[in-house]
Design a binder for these strands. Structure first.
Lengths: 342, 342
DNA sequence: ATGAAAGCGCTAACAC
DNA sequence: GTGTTAGCGCTTTCAT
């Protein structure tokens, strides 16, 4: 097994001081460029690798940004993460990613781990049932910048990056109404989450504007899983007055609900028109293709990471910005277009 | 902003030595349990957090396991990762996860990062176009254990965890033949990858055993993306002698291909029967439901992580194990069951 | 342009 | 059961 090489080893062999080696390796301007190349060559030859721990210990920072997301395996989230990586790769920062699996408990644990790994900043999209920011207090107290995206929490300081979920919900439901729907069922996630609560606001607004009544029985709170979609189809089957439109806050759930409904003999969109949310790839695989809200995940990731980095570099003060709102768009496909409607 | 608390601060306040505080915090058996609770209480009160960097620097290990996967946003991979997390959470190790996005270039960069973060061990599933193990040599040289799973590479030492892809391919194709298929198109990924090459072996074996000829023109190498599925459907449309069965090495691609074929007027399974691979949730959403190979992702993750941890703890020597093979299973659904067949 | 030296916070060998 | 002390590898201030 090879021995670990340190800057001392390099320094000794080159008759230089460790300080010079350190500076050269970090491309310090005061070092002669010749010396630099000699050192770089030797380091490479000897298989030197910098010891991040020693460096972090000494510098009192980690150049690391933590990310906590509900799940990794959603198309939306992985798109967001791709955006973050893109930005972070251009900087000297690194990303540590962890998932809460939609549980506050795990989110708290993850936050603690992030805190103990001394991330320089934290990007968070909260879990299903998170209902306070206590587990992030430690960060605020130590002045570690905190930025929420998509699923955000009310917090006195710091930025949130979101889309206008109210508007998106309004557009989705207005579209259904224009297609002739009069009983629109909204299948949603936990209404604690801004994303679902705001879409509900949009739903109500659209009904109101078109003179349709708001009925509690037409709001179904689920976990938006595939199973929830199937269960929703079962419940619809049993309803006396069946809905003629569905607005489902997640494409995966929408797609499995549609599929179950069709198995039960419903015709989509004619019996029931459906609008999903997220523009997940599966939305163009299902028959009929799913009308959905497209949502700029990559951009959201880029902006989140860039804002945080700018703040860390001192070129932007996050604490004074409030909310960044990105555009979303209704993509109309066959699942919601009734033949009768214009 | 609060000052960072160290064990020295705690020691001073409690009139103890830093060593005692350190031991107490690490639950060292020699420390009086009273002392321990006093120290623990004080640490909590003062908002102490252990400095991992100092600790890692001193202990010369990180208690961290690196994971490199092609993509995070596949159902299979996230299931594998869930399995790993489950095991790792029970131990004192942490996980660092990174994705290569199917590119060797990024995989090399990730490996380097992992190496520099001094992971104690590495779990890898390689990218699409990786064709040698050079970027893992540094780990081997330093005696850092390396374990491949699912998409594995030939390497002299170390364990691989896989399913029997040849058998899975054989079963998939035999099933299609039994349903009456005579021209079966295999849509695959890069044949450098064991998973795709071995399934091809199974495909050939099944043909051979049933007296069907093997034809080069019936093997289509793609990137198995959704777009590839649509493109494949286009190519099938143009073929003079159309296939009557498809074996597609990935459900997502299979599903989009099926969907495109149906739009072009093909009836599934009657014109073309389809078998996918992975048992992705989408396989039960598509109409008709997709016959596929089910694949124990979570178990694979658990075994991979556990084997590595056992090796690190000295209770198992990975270098002497070779290959662990997990069971897979053909799930027959409507997409492949022809009405005519028995 | 380079060097000397101190110290980041922790742990472990050795002492008592 | 607890204390003393040295050192992990790096960066940086202060010298020259």
């Amino acid at each position: 097994m090879e021995k670990e090489i340190t800057i001392y080893d390099i320094a000794k062999l080159l008759n230089l001081s460790p300080a010079t080696v350190s500076r050269a390796l970090n491309d310090h301007p005061a070092i002669n460029s010749n010396t630099k190349s000699v050192i770089a060559a030797k380091a490479k030859e000897m298989g030197y690798r910098s010891n991040t721990f020693a460096s972090n210990l000494r510098r009192q920072r980690t150049d690391t940004i933590g990310v906590i997301v509900p799940r990794l395996n959603s198309h939306f989230m992985s798109t967001v993460l791709a955006g973050m990586e893109k930005v972070v790769n251009k900087s000297s920062y690194n990303l540590i990613i962890s998932q809460s699996l939609e549980s506050v408990k795990k989110e708290i644990a993850n936050a603690k781990t992030m805190f103990n790994s001394r991330v320089d900043g934290l990007l968070v999209s909260v879990a299903y049932d998170t209902d306070n920011t206590d587990h992030f207090d430690a960060f605020v107290k130590r002045g570690i910048p905190l930025l929420f995206f998509d699923r955000v929490l009310e917090h006195k300081q710091g930025t949130s990056i979101i889309i206008d979920n109210t508007k998106a919900g309004y557009e989705a439901v207005s579209h259904l109404i224009e297609q002739g729907c009069r009983r629109i069922l909204y299948i949603t996630g936990n209404l604690k989450r801004n994303v679902y609560a705001d879409r509900l606001k949009g739903y109500r607004l659209a009904l109101l504007e078109h003179g349709l009544p708001y009925l509690d029985e037409l709001v179904m709170v689920t976990d938006l899983s595939q199973e929830a979609g199937i269960e929703a189809a079962r419940l619809i089957q049993r309803m006396d007055k069946k809905p003629d439109g569905l607005f489902i806050a997640n494409d995966l759930c929408a797609v499995s609900c549609m599929s179950a409904l069709r198995k039960n003999g419903f015709s989509i969109p004619d019996d029931i028109a459906v609008v999903g949310f997220n523009n997940d790839p599966v939305s163009v695989v299902i028959e009929p293709n799913l009308t959905t809200i497209d949502y700029p995940g990559e951009k959201m990731g880029e902006i989140a990471a860039q804002s945080l980095i700018n703040h860390l570099n001192g070129s932007l003060d996050i604490q004074n910005t409030n909310t960044i709102i990105l555009h979303s768009e209704l993509l109309i496909r066959q699942s919601s277009v009734k033949k009768g409607a214009n």
